[in-house]
Write a protein that binds this DNA or RNA. Structure first.
Length: 598
RNA sequence: GCGCCUGUAGUUUAGCUGGAUAGAAUGGCAGGCUACGAACUUGCAGAUCGGGGGUUCGAGUCCCUCCAGGCGCACCA
């Protein structure tokens, strides 16, 4: 048994009426009112039907409304001006609906057949610290993952580390330059490499930019300088090649670098409450490359072009020329298309997924179009499996240009989080008397909610203004506001349960208008969840939570919740209990949690 | 050059297959704690929806065109 969406129940009544009057039932679409001062729901179908049936919309609407007059779901159903059908729902109907929701574990959401979904998000590079640019994929991916899990899917979140490119060769080259005496670089070494690491994460974080800068020369550099840079780059390339052929020493050093980095990355993601099921990287798909290339050759789609091996991915419907997908660089070397393709193959073999979702920078769209098409053409993925590109917007600073810190650098994620937590802490210091240690814990939880809510409120594909002032302000449409409301609800419930209990979890018909508004909002929850699931749009949950928090706070201002008569009191408590569940579910799907107090 | 995306109050934004008076938040101004938590709440002011055409009974939404900004176009990932 599942609960139908509230609005759908209304719609079916209207559709039936349209049909009975001899019109196409598709005109019976019911939507939320865009004039809340006039009605709760509306149907504009008569206006649309007017053309087809060559009849005044007002007449059509009146016929339809006449058929609906006696339905107990409607308190009011009337025709207005050109032909709008305005609907108010009966208190009895909405109350019954909410009482049904109370008994539904998933709020009456429509569950599809279970699917296996791989979500690729994160994508941090080994040997580099997490910076603000890693924030969006982490936050969005985590939320998408939780939403899919809520809808009973088998979900695999993969961090997909960048651990295989030239960058690794660069780091190794710099280490070699600084420590030529290390056993990793000694060809004749045949003992055991050190168990304890010879370097720390901080070392690595400093080494990469250093190595990277050694490959770049200014335009007016001397020949000597240019040659030096080239030599460094060439060595790095060699190292990368050594690594890819798993050369002794180099490969072992690389493993150590990955180990140290991953440990640190895990710690940082944990602070963000972001969890991955898989810690695979680009390197893990390498073992499938050979097999994959053979498969493409067998299909006859792989051919040589300017030294590289490519597959055509042009389709007749394209409005522009799409370059072939490069599977191997000149010399048979892997490139990032190689890795992404091999990873698709790996996922197909390991999980046989129904869908793979990529949460990556939207600037990579063309790349993924090529990769997806190539994957289909080479049949390394099941033909029914969906490949979804979920591109997020570019992160800009307040000025609309790519985000930089005051001194022009990239802000580290840790710094950002620390700054936000500090702001929350200060805010608590103003009024609250809470123990120091707890205060610190609370500021972490609240700070994270601010960060995540602010990010998820934006539509995923839109460019993103990264504004630290906005993140550290907790007024209005923010995570802390949602949390504050939830904590308030919990606090009222606790107060009630200190002395009393509830016999039956049931809500009575509302007596105040504001109560009805809450019920109407509650009745919409399952629809919001379904939409955010189907459209991969956590922002819909953000909006919903804000709206319901807003209504609740007005209600709180108006109604003395704990001062009702016995039946009414129990009803209030049931209502609050349901609200608490809704808030907790909502924020959990967004990826944050509530403190006990704040 | 080819292609894609974006443009809505000072700022950040919502707007579902075209539908009623374009919703919010923030900042500004004016109010509300002897109350179940004031990180709350009540109100006011603030938008020629980038410009111009067109389709339509009806356009922020669809079509054309122009303007502004961003991004991408195989051996960096």
């Amino acid at each position: 048994m599942r609960l139908k969406n509230f609005i759908l129940i209304l719609q079916e009544k209207i559709e039936k009426a349209f049909e009975e009057c001899g019109y196409n039932k598709e005109y019976g679409k019911v939507i939320n009112s865009n004039r809340p001062d006039l009605c709760e729901f509306q149907c504009d179908g008569a206006l649309m039907a007017a053309k087809q049936y060559k009849k005044a919309p007002f007449i059509i609407a009146e016929e339809v409304v006449e058929k609906c007059k006696n339905n107990k779901e409607f308190e009011k159903i009337e025709v207005v001006k050109p032909g709008f059908i305005n609907i108010d729902v009966s208190k009895e109907f909405v109350t019954n609906y909410c009482n049904q929701i109370i008994n539904e574990e998933k709020f009456g959401c429509n569950m599809e057949k279970e699917k296996t979904v791989v979500i690729d998000y994160g994508g941090p590079n080994v040997a580099k610290p997490l910076h603000v640019g890693h924030l969006r994929p982490a936050i969005i991916g985590e939320s998408i993952k939780r939403i899919h899990k809520f809808f009973d899917n088998k979900v695999i979140g993969d961090v997909h580390l960048g651990d295989w490119g030239l960058q690794m060769g660069l780091v190794i080259e710099e280490l070699k330059f600084r420590h030529p005496d290390w056993p990793y670089f000694n060809e004749n070494f045949d003992g055991e490499y050190p168990k304890e690491s010879l370097f720390t994460v901080s070392d690595l974080e400093e080494i990469y930019p250093c190595a990277s800068s050694k490959t770049k020369v200014s335009d007016n550099a001397t020949e000597e300088e240019k040659e030096k840079a080239n030599e460094f780059k060439e060595n790095a390339r060699k190292n990368t090649a050594y690594l890819q052929e798993k050369k002794k020493g180099y490969y072992d050093l690389w493993k150590k670098i990955v180990e140290i980095s991953v440990k640190d990355l895990k710690e940082n993601y944990r602070k963000l409450d972001v969890e991955f099921d898989l810690w695979l990287g680009e390197s893990d798909s390498q073992k499938y490359v050979k097999q994959m290339v053979e498969k493409m050759q067998k299909l006859g789609i792989l051919y040589e072009s300017n030294g590289a091996m490519v597959v055509d991915v042009q389709e007749p419907t394209d409005t522009t020329e799409i370059n072939p997908c490069m599977v191997l660089k000149t010399g048979g070397v892997s490139c990032y298309q190689t890795t992404d393709l091999a990873t698709i193959m790996q996922r197909q073999i390991d999980f046989d997924p129904n869908e793979i979702i990529y949460v990556v920078d939207k600037r990579q769209e063309l790349h993924f179009i090529q990769v997806f098409r190539c994957a289909r053409k080479s049949k390394i993925i099941d033909e029914d499996a969906k490949l979804t590109f979920l591109g997020f917007g570019t992160m800009n600073g307040k000025d609309g240009k790519p985000f930089k810190t005051r001194n022009g650098g990239v802000m580290r994620l840790e710094t950002l989080i620390k700054e936000i937590n500090e702001k929350v802490y200060e805010k608590m210091n103003e009024t609250k008397e809470i123990e120091e240690k707890e205060k610190r814990e609370i500021s972490e939880i609240v700070g994270l909610s601010a960060l995540k809510y602010a990010d998820l409120s934006n539509q995923i594909s839109k460019d993103y203004i990264f504004d630290i002032d906005k993140f550290t302000s907790f007024d209005g449409k923010t995570g802390p506001y949602i949390l504050y409301t939830l904590v308030r609800i919990k606090s009222i419930l606790n107060k009630f349960y200190e002395t009393s209990s509830v016999k039956e979890n049931k809500i009575l018909e509302p007596t105040e208008d504001i109560e009805k508004q809450i019920l109407l909002k509650i009745a919409k929850f399952n629809q919001v969840l379904e939409e955010s699931y189907l459209e991969n749009a956590p922002s819909k949950i953000c909006v919903y939570l804000y709206e319901i928090a807003n209504i609740f706070n007005s209600y709180y201002q108006k109604v003395k919740i704990l001062q009702g008569e016995s039946d009414k009191l129990e009803s209030n408590i049931s209502l609050l209990t349901l609200l608490k569940r809704i808030f907790e579910t909502g924020i959990n799907l967004l990826g944050f949690k509530a403190p006990k107090k704040m």
